[in-house]
């Protein structure tokens, strides 16, 4: 039987959660530095310089990049050759609990949306699992802050609204958000599927590598059109004006009903923290 030992999984989760909160991925840093070169006005230059300097301080002093260390989000890919004699969700939760307590991360989760009692260990995480071919377990992790998540929106457009409807909805979402989601942002767009599928593929879009492009040519074109249109809004870093409102747009699509055109727009702040780890199944005998 192939499995991932429970202790190994918990340790991997703990390590990745602390690491993601402290070390901003170099692909994001590269985009921020490129953005700084394009800005000409005092305030956007000030903002981008501080953002770049902040991630250096965080890395060197082992401090969280942002005080909002998020609610933990996992996309889990489980190779179907693996089997587990323990509760996988409970193990992921335990890894998060240890990371947020021992890693000096903020506990930002309440037990019920209306009762609002802090759970004191940032659990539970939000976990999306899917089965894939193979004998490996891949964990994609992001500590998702509320500033940008709160500015995300979903609409059930009519098929007649078409591509322009999608573009208008995304631009409206970014305009309404203004400086609140901490621009320069990254935008994950999900089109198609149904109500919940569009939201999930928008979230998955934010987990894609920053430098990649959508495989589908229509989605790919939409990504570059939206990026240009959003950056022409003159919102700029922290909405203080400038050329860089958005670092990247990622579009994921899925087949949908003849009567539907769902669109979900998931916003990510410039502190775009995410990481992944792949664990290979081990013989358990």
């Amino acid at each position: 039987m192939l499995t991932i030992p429970k202790d190994k999984l918990i340790q991997a989760v703990k390590d990745m959660a602390i690491d993601a909160n402290i070390n901003l991925d170099q692909s994001v840093v590269k985009k921020l530095k490129a953005a700084l070169k394009k800005e000409t006005d005092r305030l956007p230059i000030n903002v981008l310089e501080n953002i770049i300097s902040n991630q250096d301080i965080a890395r060197n002093e082992h401090l969280p990049i942002c005080q909002d260390t998020g609610i933990a989000v996992f996309l889990v890919e489980i190779g179907y050759e693996l089997s587990f004699e323990y509760d996988l969700e409970a193990a992921l939760t335990e890894g998060i609990r240890q990371a947020y307590i021992e890693g000096y991360l903020r506990k930002s989760v309440v037990d019920h949306p209306l009762k609002r009692k802090n759970t004191l260990d940032n659990t539970p995480p939000i976990i999306h699992m899917k089965l894939v071919v193979g004998d490996q377990l891949t964990l994609h992790f992001a500590p998702k802050g509320a500033g940008s998540e709160n500015m995300s929106r979903l609409a059930m457009l009519t098929p007649g609204a078409g591509k322009q409807g999608v573009v208008d909805f995304v631009l409206e979402t970014v305009r309404l958000a203004g400086g609140k989601p901490c621009p320069p942002i990254i935008i994950g767009v999900g089109i198609g599927g149904n109500f919940e599928k569009s939201a999930l593929i928008a979230k998955e879009a934010l987990f894609r590598p920053l430098e990649d492009q959508a495989e589908d040519p229509v989605d790919r074109e939409l990504e570059s059109e939206l990026l240009e249109a959003v950056n022409n809004l003159d919102i700029g870093p922290m909405a203080l004006g400038g050329k860089t409102t958005c670092l990247a747009v990622k579009v994921n699509s899925y087949p949908c009903h003849i009567a539907s055109l769902p669109v979900a727009c998931n916003i990510q702040c410039h502190a775009a923290r995410k990481t992944h780890v792949t664990l290979k199944g081990e013989h358990n005998d």
């Binding site: 000030n46 953002i51 902040n54 991630q55 301080i57 401090l63 942002c66 909002d68 400086g179 901490c182």
Partner: peptide, 13 residues
């Protein structure tokens, strides 16, 4: 007033 969002490590200084 606004402080720059997402630079909590720098502001801690």
């Amino acid at each position: 007033l606004v402080a720059i969002g997402g630079i909590g490590a720098l502001l801690a200084k």
